[in-house]
């Protein structure tokens, strides 16, 4: 491809002319230039006005961190204040908020200089990128010592210390009241849980199923229909056995029942008769055969003995 020297030369001239005007002004402002002490935050605001189309290269900004042995850059924020009209045409104002911290322990009043830095702007166009550098100048502030260099002599070295601050005595009364109130609430809640779970004093005595069965037998003794009453009496004693064991006790389960509840062992024979009679009554020939095998007085005597063992247990 044939090179055309003229347009390139024109472009270079244009670029060179533009470069001078790209950064229009750099201005550093600080709230005050004096009255700083050891550890104070030193704030500054840098306004940079550039030609329209340029934007800040964030990578060119100083990194927060130690800047010198006595100076840290704590924070840096950038605000783009946008385009503004000036007499020389469209421009753009970028404002940097810098927060330094001073660690210089001064013995007398002296001026310190915060170093300057350069910030790069770039303009990306169709023909490529153009960069411009804004040089932020160094600026200084004055710091003051915290105390006299040579204080007046004291007898007691403790006197060099400032006296302790006085603290008002706190009234603990309301706290005690609050603690007491919440403790009693907790006890109430514990009582509720204990009642729900049947702990401690709320563990009521175990039900007395055989006692209930005996009571029912006494009621049934006066029933007119003796045959049906006998069946109900057998059922009542069955329910007593079931409730005592926590499961359904069949005739074949008697040895297991006696192993789990040894108190009833003396009545093993009578219990066997009862279960045999119940078998005859409900599953076999009928109630009449059962009554012949285990008459009512024997049944009631057994119920009484079972209830007595249950009370004693």
């Amino acid at each position: 491809m044939r090179v055309r020297p003229l347009p390139l030369a024109v472009l270079a001239l244009l670029w060179a002319g533009a470069a001078q005007a790209q950064v229009r002004s750099v201005e550093v402002r600080a709230p005050r230039a004096f009255g700083y002490f050891l550890g104070d935050l030193v704030r500054a605001q840098v306004d940079i006005v550039v030609d329209a189309g340029f934007s800040l290269q964030a990578a060119s900004l100083p990194q927060p961190g130690p800047q010198a042995y006595w100076l840290d850059l704590r924070d840096l924020r950038v605000a783009d204040l946008g385009p503004e009209k000036t007499s020389e045409g469209e421009a753009r104002r970028v404002r940097l908020f810098l927060t330094y911290q001073n660690f210089y322990a001064a013995l007398d009043v002296r001026a310190l200089e915060i170093p300057g830095f350069a910030v790069t702007f770039e303009n990306v166009g169709v023909h490529g990128a153009t960069t411009a550098t804004a040089q932020v100048p160094a600026w200084s502030f004055t710091i003051s010592p915290l105390r006299e260099v040579v204080p007046p002599t004291r007898e007691n070295p403790v006197d060099y210390m400032r006296p302790d601050g006085r603290v008002a005595a706190v009234d603990a009364g309301p706290l005690w009241w609050g603690a007491g109130g919440f403790a009693s609430l907790a006890l109430l809640a514990l009582a509720g849980v204990a009642r729900d779970r049947a702990w401690g004093p709320f563990r009521t005595r175990r039900g007395r199923p055989f006692g209930a069965a005996l009571a029912q037998l006494r009621r049934l003794r006066r029933a007119p229909d003796a045959e049906a009453a006998y069946g109900e009496a057998l059922l009542a004693l069955h329910r007593g056995l079931d409730a005592t064991d926590g499961r359904r006790v069949l005739a074949d389960d008697l040895p297991g029942f006696l192993a789990r509840h040894p108190a009833y062992r003396p009545d093993a024979g009578a219990l066997g008769n009862l279960l045999g009679a119940s078998r005859l009554a409900f599953f076999g020939p009928g109630l009449a055969a059962a009554r012949a095998a285990l008459p009512w007085p024997a049944l009631e005597a057994l119920a009484r003995r079972l209830a007595a063992i249950e009370r004693a247990a």
Binding site: L235, H238, R247, R248
Partner: peptide
């Protein structure tokens, strides 16, 4: 089931 259903 056998612990729950009443026998007679």
């Amino acid at each position: 089931v056998f612990d729950t259903v009443p026998a007679p």
